[in-house]
Amino acid sequence: MNNLELEKKLDLYRGMRTIRECEERLVRSHQRGLIPGPCHTYIGQEAVAVGVCACLRNDDVIFSTHRGHGHAIAKGLHPRELMAEVFGRATGCSGGRGGSMHLFAPEVGLMGTSGIVGPSILQATGAGYSFKVLKTDQVSVAFFGDGAVNNGAFHEGLNMATIWNLPVLFVCENNQFATEVPFHYSSGNPSVAARGAAYGLPGVEVDGNDVLAVYEVAGEAIQRARSGEGPTLIECKTYRTRPHAEGMDDYSYRTREEVDEWKSRDPILRLREILVADNESMKENLGAMDTEVKALIDEAEKFAEESPYPDPLTAEDHVFSANSRKIDHA
């Protein structure tokens, strides 16, 4: 392993650890009553967001889902802005108007997480169309779950991206449950990747708990998109090891054994094992990194908790671009 490769692997490790630490803290915050709304964590799926976003530039864009904390952090949102938003504070990335499912940070290419299943696919296609009209070499990514692939947006979006040869990555995180409905129940074809052929674009299946594999597959697809060779569909097989949303029952539709089995395939542990197997002394480096990440999240949580709530007088601000509270006659 050369140094560059090691550095990249450590970046991937740090990225996944940051998401995990943040999500575990949000779980506790939810239990402590600090989160006024729903909270869908990304625990278990970190390799997907981190592997894909590590291949993107700052001016590339992503569109995400209701389970979007991981994508937001991987694309560069500071955890303090995420936590403040989820806590409903004025300092959150959406000024407290969005919450967990509506995170926006265009300055890092996070064009939004969404409470509706499907639109991320169409919006990423639209960003790809923008880049075509503007003649830039930016790339757009749609993250979506297995629940979205039986929705019309998937069909319409993949078809449009293909006929117009748009620079878009369609990243399906197949965590095997649409809320609590198993994918094998709701899909006639058990392979999402195989559906690419139906639209005339490459479909690739990858182990979504193997960050190095995701990084490699996404890197090739992004390179293709950037050089004008069009869209790619990537199916990342993964699993969420927390309930659909915090506070929900988890064992009415799956077994504890199944969850434990997937926990043993944890993407962070897997990368850690690879790094340590290559070099035993890496344990110390990784331990130091874990401590740094913990400090970062400590600070983010403190920032969020100490931040003020938004002023109720601003509740109707930003409905229109002029930001007028009265009807804008201009």
């Binding site: 919006q123 296609t125 639209g126 960003a127 169309y129 923008s130 019309g152 449009m160």
Partner: peptide, 24 residues
């Protein structure tokens, strides 16, 4: 700039949202 679409109204309106968010 004058783009004929397939008959997929939801698709191209959803596309418009993403396009507007990214500078066109």
């Amino acid at each position: 700039r004058l783009c004929d679409t397939p008959i997929c109204e939801r698709g191209f309106v959803g596309l418009a949202a993403g396009a507007a968010m990214t500078g066109t």
